[in-house]
Every structure is written in C-alpha cells, then in structure tokens.
Write a protein that binds this DNA or RNA. Structure first.
Length: 551
RNA sequence: GUGCCCGUAGCUCAAUGGAUAGAGCAUCAGCCUUCUAAGCUGAGGGUUACUGGUUCGAGUCCAGUCGGGCAUACCA
C-alpha cells in the first residue's frame, strides 16, 4: 500500500518545486482517527523550506491526486501530519491480490540476482547442541528465509573446526572412557569432556572392536569416531527444528594449501603485511590493531606457531568475499561480540567493501522452570541440551519461543508455558487461527461447494464491517513487515505481526457469521478467510513452524 | 577499569525520532441449544531506572549516574 501512496507524494513535492534528499516516510497511525496512513513529510521539510508545516501540508495536498474510489479523503492534523483515509472497497480490492499472489505474497525482487550467505550455528563437533546454540540457529534460519523472500539466492553455511586442540581433547576423552570399558584403571582428567555422550561413543567403539584398540597410542580413531557421531547428532537435532545447511565449511581447509600455493591463513598474513599491519614481537605474530586506535594488538599466530582463532576467521571471511557474495550475514551469540570488529577491520584494510557484512548478535537465553530462572552457560557446564528441549516442548514451540523476543533482549524461555496446550501459549494461538480457517473452508466446500481458487473474490469489496476492514487492512501490511524484518534482521517483527493477524481473525470470526450469512456475503467472508490463511501460511513458512489444518 | 547489549504495567515483552507509550500472562467482571470457548468483550494497572542536553516533537538520539548481562586470553 506504501507503493500506492508514495508516487503521489513525490509527485506533489515536484509540483511544489521541492527538492530534497529526505526519505518520504509513510506510517500507520496508532489511532484510526489519524487516518489509515500518514506522512510527516511536511514536518520534516518545514525547516529546510523555511515554511510553516501546516501551510506546506496544505500545498502538498493540493498537488495530490488519486483515482476515484481509492483515497476517500486527506487531512492535515496536529502540527502538520498529512493523513490519508482509504475507501473500504479499495482496501478489500487490494486484498484480492493476496489470493492471486498466493505463496508469493510478500516476496519482492529487491534481492533478485544477488547472492547472500548466512552463517549460523557453527558449533564445533565436540558435543551435542545446547539450548544456547538453538536461539542463534533459529534466528539465522529465519533470516535466511527472510532474505529468500526478497529474491536473494541464499547459501546457509555452517563453519566448523575438527582440527583444533578441543577436538584432540575430545578424542582423548573417548579414549579414556574406552579404556574404562576395557577394564583398565584410568583417572579421567577434569579438563576433559565430562558428558555422558562420551561414554556412549566409547561404547560404540567397544562393541565394534572389543579391546583391540586398547594398546593403540593413536588418538585418531577415537577422535574421528567421536566427530562422526557427534556431527550426526548435531545435524539430526537441527533437522528436527527444520534447520538444514547448504554448506559446511571446515576451518581446517584454511590451514592447508595445494602445491605451489600458500594457505588461506598465510595469504591473509601476507596481504596484511603488505599493508603494514603485521608486527612480530614476543615470539608471536600480531595484527597491529593499535594503529587503528585500539588499545592492544591482537595475536594472529601464537608463539607456538599455531594461528589463533582470529586469523582463520579473517581468512574465512576473505573467502566469503572471494566467493562473491553480495551480502554476508553472520549470526552469533553475545559472547562473540568482540570478535567481529577485528575481522571487519582486516577486510577493510584489504580493500573489501565491508558494508556487505551484517552481523546479527543474539543475547543469551535464560530458562524458566517452575518460576525459577536458570542461566545457560556452556562453560559452567549447566547448559541443557537442545534435543531435550525439543522433546519437551516440540519443534514449533522451540522455534517460535527463540524468536518471539527481539534478538537484543535477554530471552526468558518459560518451559511450562511452551508446553501448555492452551491459548496462553503463543504457538497455539497462531496455529489455532490457521486450523480454524482450514476447518471452516472444509465445511464450506462440503456444504456450499466453495472453492478457494474459484470465482467471487471481487465480492469482498462489499464488506464494510469494522472487523472485516481491520482484518483486510492488516493483511496488506505483510510485505512491509517482511521488508522491515529484513532491514533489521529481526524475525521477531513477523511473530508480533502474525499475532495481530490471528487476533483480528478471531475477532472477525466471533463477530461475523460466515457460513450462515447471505450467499454473497458468505462468499466474500470465505475469501477474506482464504487471504488470511495465505498470510498466516507464508508467515509460518518464514518462521519455520508448521501450519496445522486441524487441531 | 574499558567496550557492547539491556533497564518500559505485578510478570514476559512491543513501540523505522511522531499524535493519548501498547500486547500477552496474571487479577477482576461478562459472552457457548449458534461455523472449533485452543476463542471473544470489558475493567483496573505507568514519573518508560535517574539527571541534564539536542528539536516542531525523545521510551527512542547525545552526555553523565545507578542497576543487570556479556566480553575484555598467545581459548573458539
């Protein structure tokens, strides 16, 4: 609907000989008294034009013209807002487009021909996924879905490392447990992975090889088996909540090089060295971030000769640029917040357009169990498993709860609430609206032969009750909600919006008889229901939750 | 100490610098012989942590204070 008003406003500005680089803003006033849509353009330009905002608004209105039957009236209000009131029939006429566009409603082509990479989850295969990872996982997945609707060709990538010290320790941990199974006396070190899953892996090896591996001093079989099993479990867990990556990028590949070539890590060092941002002292190789106004330099290669995590990180992002992505989105938790500025700085120094990088950081999750809050921390070892959460509350609730608060807010996950099969639970509230429509349409098909793809959607233009108009009007917001979710990398906007749509549908359903109405009104209301179902479905698709046809 | 995020109704959270700060839960009062009551209607509930500043306009931006979280490794 913004697209409908915008050209007229620009036209009016031209007619008034106003040139401005200010963006015209159209918003939906909270109060209906202030119109269906409103623009503050006169207020914004008031100073620049040295004119009274109300006078300016009057002139602009004089220059605006709309086709018959679209805009009912325009008003100047308050300090100089221009408020637009639409014809109800025009609103409902626009709703018809939703049905016509179907699954494509809400998509746009702003990203057409562009590629995007979204990196998320990226947990090393040292153990099963924890709840803390879940939030970033779902956030990243929804962001990828959002970008897809805008026409981007999206690569969903998982970055991991199976070569570091942590993986060595993992292998050793399995080996200790295995030796226990063989009946050897071992003291399991505190520094190693304590989880039960280590024993399970050891058991797999013991079942297969009995004690044949006991004398082996080679850690490889333990590490490799652990990695395979754990990665499998991670992917299975992700699959349960509809997360599937297109590409798994192994950090280790950045350390190695083909013949006559240097490794990606080494290339970064060389390139930064050319720009004179590399220093060598205290036995280590440093990224001279102090030259950029930071307090300290950052280690890229430790005195042991091993790269610190920062170097492969930069190399990895350099690789993303080399792969030519137009948009690079990184999703990670607040504990990595200090990591990305160095990466961005390095790439900027190397001459890349770092404006392409967007970082979505999610704050941590605290679980509420029976009113008690439990903070999640992988390091303290009290993190619960994502799998157990999914067992407990289901995939849909898991996904929705992770994104129903903005990513910047510290999420409070109320397990009891997520488990409830009642209206208190927002998952059920949303899904119930969809199921209710499906049920209604089934009945309509049976009783009066109604077909959602049939004719008669134009009859919606006759609808004029408050509940009908409000619902139809809300459905038209959907594309704008997607746009703003994309702009802010914030699926939470979608959740809130869909909740509003569900609420308005329930009100409509409550107040307006559908099957029992006169045939023409009945058809009109059924089509309004079809349009609502379409918006809910499309929205659920982005959030990755199911759209049940009955409950 | 320094950097980043947060502080809004009893609780969980919304509000691209816009008009009288909104939802849900909880509380209280109503609505089913009627298409799913897994729903709807209504009521109460606020000095937006505090103090200044910027401007037509600040919950939002800036500075400071207080409180909570996360970082601040030659861990990832």
């Amino acid at each position: 609907m913004q697209e409908f008003l915008l050209p007229a406003i620009h036209q009016a500005l031209r007619a008034a000989s106003i040139n401005t680089d200010k963006q015209v803003q159209i918003e939906k006033p909270a109060d209906k008294k202030n119109g269906d849509y409103s623009t503050n353009i006169a207020l914004m330009l008031s100073r620049e034009c040295r004119r009274n905002p109300r006078d300016l608004a009057t002139e602009l209105i004089g220059h605006m013209a709309f086709p018959e039957g679209t805009v009912e009236k325009m008003e100047i209000a308050g300090p100089g807002f221009i408020n637009f009131f639409l014809e109800p029939a025009f609103i409902m006429q626009s709703v018809e487009h939703i049905i016509r566009e179907g699954n494509g409603y809400g998509s746009s082509c702003t990203g057409k021909g562009k590629t995007a990479i979204v990196e998320y989850v990226s947990a090393n295969p040292t153990g099963p996924l924890t709840i803390g990872r879940g939030r970033g996982g779902v956030l990243g997945d929804c962001i990828a879905n959002l970008l897809s609707t805008q026409g981007y060709r999206v690569t969903r990538e998982y970055y991991f490392n199976d070569a570091g010290r942590q993986m060595q320790i993992l292998g050793e941990s399995v080996r200790y447990r295995y030796l226990e199974l063989c009946g050897c006396e071992v003291s399991f070190p505190d520094t190693h992975y304590q989880g039960e899953y280590i024993r399970d892996i050891a058991e797999v090896l013991f079942m297969e090889h009995a004690d044949a591996l006991a004398d082996s001093s080679d850690n490889t079989v333990f590490k490799d088996t652990a990695e395979a099993i754990i990665f499998n479990s991670i992917r299975r867990t992700l699959e349960r909540i509809n997360i599937r990556h297109d590409s798994f990028f192994n950090e280790h590949t950045l350390y190695t090089a083909a013949e006559h070539e240097t490794s990606a890590n080494q290339q970064v060092l060389d390139l930064l060295d050319e720009k004179e941002f590399i220093g060598r002292y205290d036995g280590a190789t440093w990224f001279l971030t102090s030259k950029l106004g930071q307090e300290k330099d950052k280690v890229l290669v430790k005195s042991t000769g091993e790269p610190s995590y920062r170097l492969p990180d930069i190399a990895y992002h350099l690789d993303k640029f080399r792969r030519g992505f137009d948009l690079i989105v990184n999703v990670f938790g607040a504990d990595h917040i200090d990591e990305y500025p160095d990466v961005v700085e390095a790439l900027r120094i190397l001459g890349h357009d770092t404006g392409r990088i967007r970082v979505a950081i999610n704050q941590f999750v605290t679980m509420t169990v029976n009113g008690e809050t439990v903070k999640m921390s992988t390091r303290k070892g009290n993190a619960d498993l994502l799998d157990e959460l999914i067992d407990d509350v289901g995939a849909d609730a898991t996904r929705l709860f992770f994104i129903m608060r903005s990513k910047d807010s510290h999420l409070n996950f109320d397990i009891e609430l997520a488990k409830k099969q009642s209206k208190d639970n927002p998952v059920f509230y949303l899904q119930y609206a969809h199921a209710r429509i499906c049920s209604l349409l089934r009945m309509a098909a049976e009783e009066v032969g109604f077909r959602p793809d049939g004719t008669g959607s134009h009859l919606m233009q006759a609808l004029c009750l408050e509940e009908e108009i409000q619902l139809g009007f809300a459905l038209l917001d959907y594309p704008e909600v997607i746009r703003s979710s994309v702009r802010m990398l914030e699926p939470q906007k979608m959740v809130e919006y869909l909740h509003t749509v569900a609420e308005l549908y329930h009100k409509f359903y409550q107040e307006c008889p559908i099957l029992k109405a006169e045939p023409e009104i009945r058809t009109a209301r059924l089509f309004l229901s079809v349009a609502t179902r379409q918006v809910l479905r499309n929205g659920f698709g982005i959030l990755g939750i199911s759209a049940p046809e009955s409950m």
